[in-house]
Amino acid sequence: MGSIYKRGKTYWVKYYRNGRPCFESTHSGKRSVATRLLKIREGRVAEGRLPEFRILKTRIDDLVDLYLKDYENNGRKSLVRARQFSELIKERFGGMQAAHITTEQITDYRTERREEGVKDSTINRELAALRRMFRLGQKQSPPMVGPIPNIEFVRENNVRKGFFELEEFYALTGALPDHLKVTATIAYFTGMRLGEILDLRWDHIDWDSGTIRLDPGTTKNDEGRLLPMMSDVRETLEQWRLNTMKDWPKCPWICHYHGERFSRIYRAWRTACKRVGLEGRLFHDLRRSAVRNLVRAGVPQAVAKKISGHKTDSVFNRYNIVSQGDLLEATKQISKYIHKKRNQIKNGYNLVTISHPEIQSASQVIEK
């Protein structure tokens, strides 16, 4: 027979499993909560469905440690971001038993983050980290957690639609410092991601074949790519290499500032964008522009995806942005096509015409 007792202001329950006493805190000062928990535990003992004692002892801090260890062991590139998510989760749920975290508490967490002005997309990433923690705990032997609480994700509506027309790109590069001109030129004409560009070394360039090699494991999807160098990219890289070999001959990095590899570009980027009236544009808009240009140049989508590194059609198509100019150009093309077809039709056969009102009235009189 179980019992209820109090430690300080918190009620605890005591029940027996296989003849051994089990003690569990209700984390509540209400006796009704303790009564309900005791009935649940005794019922599950009778049915043989009571979670293992390890599950009842697991705290969210244990799952956070498991989550970060998984990132470190697998060498994931977003470890810094994972640590940020972990701090937020520990700040809200730290010290709590994982078995006691409910969907209602998770919903409250979303509400609080929204009130702090955090975007839904960011909150979704944080909750995805929490779900990952629970799943890792479930995979342990023996399991560290039981059933995972339902975690709802809201639909995101923050798909970026920015891109650069060619004249805008040239205006921007004119305002960028030399070391960022190289970075921006590679992004605009190849569609490479910023992280991929910053990892480039001179030995990744094959001058004879005119290609840039991305090794497996250095890209977002860990797959290697071979990218052709357009004339703008080649000319920019050749000039930059001459400057590098002259002043910093031992520097292996393509993207460097005075021979030192750099990792932050945003202050200089924002300054240049503001100077040429393109405030609010993102560096990633260069990648969208590259995909857009590939499609408009008639490059087959399968080939374009290989160049850009997209694995799915859905994400690739999101980058293929349509502008007002594209719509006007499509209208011109349709008009030319229709005009050409009309000229091919002889004697006006099958042409769609609208009769003059007087002629139409006369025909109606004749029919009567």
Rank of each mutant, 00 (worst) to 15 (best):
T107I: 12
S209Q: 14
K69W: 00
E42S: 06
S308L: 07
A99S: 13
S25R: 00
S28Q: 04
V182M: 03
G146S: 15
D247G: 00
H258I: 06
P143Q: 12
A302G: 04
E168M: 04
H310T: 03
T219I: 03
Q344K: 08
R110I: 06
A129Q: 12
T58Y: 02
G217W: 05
G43K: 11
E52D: 13
F262Y: 15
I307L: 10
D285Y: 08
T312M: 03
I151C: 09
G298I: 05
R261W: 07
L38Q: 03
K311W: 05
W240T: 04
A171Q: 11
K274S: 09
S141L: 14
T190A: 06
E168N: 08
R59Y: 05
L286Q: 03
Y16S: 10
M192H: 07
Q138W: 10
D206Y: 10
I60H: 04
T111N: 09
C255G: 07
N73S: 12
F262I: 09
R44P: 01
V154L: 13
T183S: 08
N243S: 10
A128N: 15
R36W: 03
H256K: 08
R125F: 10
Q97K: 14
K306E: 13
T353N: 07
T211D: 02
G325Q: 13
H258E: 12
F85M: 11
G146L: 09
F189E: 04
F85N: 09
E238F: 12
K57D: 15
N320S: 11
G95I: 06
W248R: 07
K139L: 15
L56Y: 10
G117E: 08
D247I: 05
K9S: 14
P147L: 15
R125S: 09
E223Q: 14
A34I: 00
K250Q: 13
D208N: 13
T10G: 08
C251W: 03
T244Y: 02
Y257L: 13
Q301D: 13
Y67W: 12
V118D: 02
Q140N: 14
S231T: 15
H256W: 00
D108T: 11
R201M: 15
H256V: 02
L66S: 05
D222G: 07
M144G: 08
A272Y: 06
G48W: 13
R31P: 02
I60D: 03
P51R: 01
K368R: 10
F164A: 05
G117V: 02
K346H: 09
L172I: 04
G259T: 06
R160K: 09
Q105G: 09
N347E: 14
R20G: 02
I197K: 07
G174E: 09
S361K: 15
G75C: 09
S335T: 10
M1F: 05
R292V: 02
P142V: 12
R44L: 12
R318Y: 01
M230V: 10
